[in-house]
Amino acid sequence: MQDEPLDDALADAGYHHVPDDQGGRAARRWWDANAHEYLDEHGDFLGPADLLWCPEGLRESQAHLLGDVRGARVLEVGAGAAQGTRWLRTAAGAHGIATDVSAGMLAAAARLDAATGTRTPLVQADARALPFADGAFDVVFTAFGALPFVPDAHRVHAEVARVLRPGGRWVFSVTHPLRWAFPDDPGTGGLTATRSYFDRRPYVETAADGRVLYAEYHRTLADHVADVVGAGLVLDGLVEPEWPAGHERVWGGWGPVRGARLPGTLVVRAHRPPA
């Protein structure tokens, strides 16, 4: 007899602890199932080939957070449909590789390659166990990828430090830690803190049988800094993009109402010390 298909209908959502192995595995299945929906909703803003750091609209073509990448070996972790790597290869002159844990997102990346007439090297990999040699890259980056969806983000930083050459750069963007104290509401309902900033229980969605369907993890600002430093990397700076005037797009809990008062994104810049 064939096994009955699993029922992935959402039964419960909230902030509570779940076993790390269950929470850490959930991202692959969730992104496989929701790749089409995610790109249908946000694809026009992301573009087929562009490096967007955050819902505030900060793009690498404006911010230059990665520095001059012409001829550089660049790795993107948690790349989704690889829009960032595709832009780096076609517009910035980098030798880029995109990785993601989700086969569904990488399939979407292949479709974007076909639509744009480009060829992006795509590798399915968990950012906590990268299949690359030590010191293989000059730059590693992620824009809201990998780090929010694992309970052990320090392993991602350790892997990044390993695959970076001495002097290489690591840049990542995440939801601003302050946001976790507030409801995920882009309007006025999201302006009043309802949870402790120090409550590190992840946001979890579960099925009726208790299976974890989705898990997203909160880390304080100090946690992010400790993870970077603990991996032997040097912190170069923090960026908190302001909400730009005239930008009316709402993306989940991001929008002009909250953006005018609260930071929505944290971008961290670091490097591996020279040998």
Rank of each mutant, 00 (worst) to 15 (best):
H157G: 07
A193F: 06
R269D: 05
P273E: 08
A143P: 03
V268R: 00
A94I: 09
P177T: 07
R28P: 01
F132L: 08
T192L: 10
T118R: 08
A143T: 11
R59C: 12
T116P: 10
E4M: 12
A114D: 11
G43Y: 02
E248D: 15
D152C: 08
P274H: 11
W251L: 12
D152N: 10
S61V: 14
L39D: 04
R86S: 13
V101P: 02
T265C: 04
V268G: 01
Y197A: 04
L147T: 12
A158S: 14
G167T: 11
E205T: 05
H247T: 09
D138I: 10
H224C: 03
R169D: 04
D68P: 07
A81Q: 09
R89S: 11
V239L: 03
L213F: 11
T265L: 00
V212P: 01
A108Y: 14
L164I: 05
L191G: 05
G84E: 09
S196K: 07
G23Q: 01
H95K: 14
D3Y: 14
A72N: 06
P148G: 03
G210R: 12
G252H: 11
L191S: 09
A215K: 09
P166C: 12
T85A: 15
A231L: 07
F141P: 01
A82M: 09
A107L: 10
V140R: 01
A181S: 12
S173V: 08
L51N: 03
D209H: 13
Y203N: 05
V250E: 13
A91P: 10
A13G: 04
F141N: 10
Q62E: 15
G167D: 08
F172D: 01
R25G: 10
N34I: 01
M1C: 08
Y38S: 06
L51K: 02
L262Y: 08
F45R: 14
R200P: 01
T142S: 15
A108I: 05
A115H: 03
A125N: 07
D134V: 04
V239A: 02
A72D: 11
R249N: 04
A158C: 03
A13M: 12
F198D: 15
A114H: 14
H218P: 09
H218Q: 12
E37H: 13
L106S: 06
D100S: 07
R219H: 14
C54E: 10
P273L: 11
H218R: 12
A158K: 09
G24A: 01
P121A: 14
P48C: 06
P177H: 07
E159C: 01
H95W: 15
D7H: 06
T175Y: 04
V69P: 07
R162C: 03
G84K: 00
L233I: 06
F172T: 03
A109G: 09
A127N: 02
L46A: 11
T120Q: 10
D12Y: 13
A136G: 08
A115W: 00
D209I: 15
E37N: 14
P256K: 07
G23W: 04
G117R: 05
V174H: 00
D32N: 15
A91C: 15
A208C: 03
P186T: 05
R162G: 05
P186R: 02
V204M: 06
V225I: 15
W254C: 00
G230M: 13
A92M: 13
G67T: 11
